[in-house]
Write a protein that binds this DNA or RNA. Sequence first.
DNA 1: TTGCACAATGGCAACGTTAACATTTGGGCG
DNA 2: CGCCCAAATGTTAACGTTGCCATTGTGCAA
Lengths: 344, 344
Amino acid sequence: MASLTRKDRPMAAVKKSVSVKDVARLAGVSEQTVSRTVHDSPSVRPETKERVRAAMRELGYRPNFAGRSLRRGKFKTVGVAMFNITGTGNLDRMEGFAAAADKHGYAITLTKVDGHPYTLESASSRMSALPVDGMVVIMNRMPADFGTFEPLPGMQTVLVTMLEHPLCSTVDNDQFDCSRQVVEYLLERGHKTVHFISCPERSLSGMRREEGWRETLRAHGIEPPQLVRGDWTAQSGYAAGQALADDPTCTAIYASNDAMAYGCIRGLESRGKHVPEDVSVVGVDDSLGDIVPDRRLATVRFDNKRVGMWAVDKIAGAEGVEPGVEHMLFPGVLVEGDTVRDWR
Amino acid sequence: MASLTRKDRPMAAVKKSVSVKDVARLAGVSEQTVSRTVHDSPSVRPETKERVRAAMRELGYRPNFAGRSLRRGKFKTVGVAMFNITGTGNLDRMEGFAAAADKHGYAITLTKVDGHPYTLESASSRMSALPVDGMVVIMNRMPADFGTFEPLPGMQTVLVTMLEHPLCSTVDNDQFDCSRQVVEYLLERGHKTVHFISCPERSLSGMRREEGWRETLRAHGIEPPQLVRGDWTAQSGYAAGQALADDPTCTAIYASNDAMAYGCIRGLESRGKHVPEDVSVVGVDDSLGDIVPDRRLATVRFDNKRVGMWAVDKIAGAEGVEPGVEHMLFPGVLVEGDTVRDWR
DNA sequence: TTGCACAATGGCAACGTTAACATTTGGGCG
DNA sequence: CGCCCAAATGTTAACGTTGCCATTGTGCAA
């Protein structure tokens, strides 16, 4: 039945592509009038518009993007380059990209960039061949050419990173502030110091969290204790928890992500320590939701959607005006939980 | 310093856009020869090519996508329409989209479609205005127009769903088979029946899992016990676990996702039941990795990347040939864990 | 020497759209 | 009744690329 329906369609709909010319001919007007109708120009008589619209419907006309872009010199599209698609927060960031793009009538073009070498240049040249007006690069680690990179002329480039770049706008979560919040929160609750479970050294955000932890402690006159280096997995958090369980000075642990925080709790428990009675634990990312329903992990929640929106807004919102270089950091929100107790 | 470098660039690089014409003029050849050089045609003398390439470098030429697409009538781009960006497995699917697109020299254009109304038509018309050669729609629930939808002429459309559509190719994970694997696995281990923690009824994949559970039990001559309806959260799994803890016939629980499975384990434990000693528990999705490091949850792992690749391959791989309608389901893999014990 | 094949390059047109300018039409007003 | 203005519509050209065909040059066999 369905195929019958298709056959009944006017022949023109099967043609390679229906252009303004076809519509103009059928409606008995000029191509320009068709174009004006498409853009709902006020200088076309309502009845003419209706006639043109009817012709468009009959032929199944849809404007050709290439012709339009060629004419306008704009694609109304923002490219997003990622070295890794998978990654904490990427889905939320994409939600943000899509939302902001939508708002401005833009589309998002997603590209995976090979990370060998891990350079902004490779992301940029990959994008240069695509129909985009601007680009966003999601950086996870330090590109080899970060200092020397120049964005393509005419291609507004926004980096998602906490590092500031002289020629590109940047936006990210404020990882330093995240650590500051956590450390001060724990100190306020009476802990004398805060131990830290870190992450692999190539992670930019992880390193920034480490800095924040260290410097905040120092700002409070506390010499940071030896940190334990993890690898983002709960497994490594478990080991860290076991190691820290024997340290009598350890009453509060700050883990660089939630998985390690959970692992750490298990590791502590396996050594007979209770959370939060004996030790307080705080994570980062709020990535696990309510998976352990009987105990809500204290953590920091980031608004990655907002980060994504800011990046695309910066490009799609500029609309011709010479865009200045801006740097934006959004603070996270500390989410209290059942894994911290007052130490006083 | 950086700004100085910029200023030193040849003027042409600042011009709106460098075209073949500019390159041709500088290299002292025709536009056609430039085009041929870009495509590395064998019928251009190597020294001519080099001269053209030098001109391209000097001017910072990059081919204009719009002109090219207009000429070719192809965009080399696949559109992806999603009603919800966030969702289990979407990141892996995107990884697959991007990988397959890359392979074929295609790009991915991502679009969020408003779900009001939740129709394929709205996804389709949203895409029709974008520069794409084909589209993928990720379906989470049943669109109102699933039966009557016709893809746009000339726009190959692939649906990510387990429902078969007469006019569109479809691809998804095999949720029925997933349940079959889990149920048979538990029965083989000596359990007399398998209890099920379900999910909201609007979820297509969830409903299919429910069917699989029910029918597999029946195929083994077992009348399915009363199911417990959850809402995907660990919280609801917790409640389900508590409820099932009092049921003496309940020795094996199959939860429709991992979060509920974890919650369920906690619920059982809160009622004094031990996993796997008293009750075996299996989840679905393998979404939580090793978060509870001392106990690996038995679950089913899906290869969403493969699903994504298949969808884009179907479109980008067709390349002009009239593509037949195909339906593909990929089975998941049961991952054994520490939450199931032999019941014999 | 002529003719021919082939390699290298150039000229032209067209893809679909729309900005800028040109033309027609109808109506109000002196 | 003629003039002018504004509304409505038409004409032209150009955006950048590339397929097709034409032209030029080069070497080789007849």
